[in-house]
């Protein structure tokens, strides 16, 4: 009979064992610094604050009741969802033609240069970029003075700064590469002979695009939607700098609860609720997308 220790030692010499051993430092780090804190924040959302660092004993749903019934929190949550949703739609719609152009219209040796050019702005200071949108969209901003100079407008446009529109424009700019890259990767994977076959069988260019290219690009579009929608809901800097009073989002309220009002439990509740709502929407979107794509049927068959 082998002892348990010997069995374990043997296991860690197999391929599976070595893999598990190798991944363990990274996995352990994620466990301690991500899983544990995420669990902690869920727990804290059920507590009530009594002192600076003290909580009342016992769990309660008080924070959830407050977060769901107070019209201010409800409005912030709905606005955040609306902004995230709009940013996602705008970003993905604007990104698709770019991804399509780089995949189908650019010479293979120039593709990586285009992708590199698209990603560069993303790596430059986020704060500075957001602040410059304020400069561009302002009352005497670059856009208004430019349009006035050309004679398109007489009075500066005021609907583009310190409101939700400004937040949407700025976020659509910040998340552009996140939408372009997954769609580009999906388009690159399409076997070009499918398109030729479709044309040979008498489909027009438009029909080939709609019936072959688009369905095959769908996984990339789904990935782009999720990768834009999920993080934007928690953006703090953009609403703070360009949103004005009417453009504040849930992250600003979470920050206020934690760092100003010293009400960590309510802040935690708002964070948990935001994540929960986003997760539900993402899952529903995935299921609907999966059904629409024919229940995961592989392209080119059926």
């Amino acid at each position: 009979m082998m002892t348990a220790g010997e069995k374990l030692r043997r296991f860690f010499r197999t391929d599976q064992g070595v893999g598990l051993l190798l991944v363990s430092p990274t996995a352990l780090y994620a466990l301690l610094l991500l899983a544990v804190p995420l669990i902690a924040i869920v727990v804290i959302s059920f507590l009530t604050q009594t002192g600076v660092r003290d909580f009342a004993p016992g769990l309660s749903l008080v924070n959830y009741k407050e977060a769901l019934s107070d019209p201010l929190y409800r409005e912030l949550m709905l606005r955040s969802l609306m902004v995230s949703g709009s940013v996602t739609v705008v970003t993905v719609l604007l990104a698709f033609p770019i991804a399509y152009f780089v995949s189908f219209g650019v010479k293979p040796e120039q593709k990586s240069l285009w992708i590199f050019l698209i990603t560069i702005p993303f790596w430059t200071s986020y704060l500075i970029r957001v602040f410059l949108w304020k400069v561009i969209l302002g009352y005497n901003g670059v856009l208004n003075s430019g349009l006035k100079l050309v004679g398109i407008i007489d009075e500066p446009l005021t609907f583009i700064l310190y409101n939700v529109n400004a937040v949407i424009i700025t976020l659509a700019h910040a998340y552009a590469p996140f939408a372009i890259l997954p769609i580009f990767v999906a388009l690159e994977k399409i076997d070009r002979s499918y398109l030729e076959a479709s044309r040979d069988l008498g489909e027009s260019r438009t029909m080939t695009f709609l019936r072959v290219t688009l369905p095959l690009a769908a996984p990339g579009v789904v990935a782009a939607v999720l990768i834009v929608f999920i993080p934007t809901i928690g953006d703090y800097v953009t609403p703070k700098l360009v949103g004005g009073p009417g453009g504040t989002m849930i992250a600003n309220m979470i920050q206020t609860q934690f760092l100003r009002l010293n009400n960590a439990p309510l802040g935690a509740t708002l964070a948990v609720l935001a994540m929960l709502i986003v997760a539900v929407i993402a899952i529903v979107f995935l299921i609907v997308g999966y059904r629409a794509a024919g229940g995961g049927k592989k392209g080119g068959r059926g």
């Binding site: 991500l34 804190p37 995420l38 902690a40 924040i41 999920i230 993080p231 934007t232 809901i233 928690g234 953006d235 703090y236 992250a251 979470i254 920050q255 934690f258 802040g267 935690a268 964070a271 935001a274 994540m275």
Partner: peptide, 8 residues
Amino acid sequence: PEIIVAVS
């Protein structure tokens, strides 16, 4: 979202 990582 980074704010979730930060507050947790």
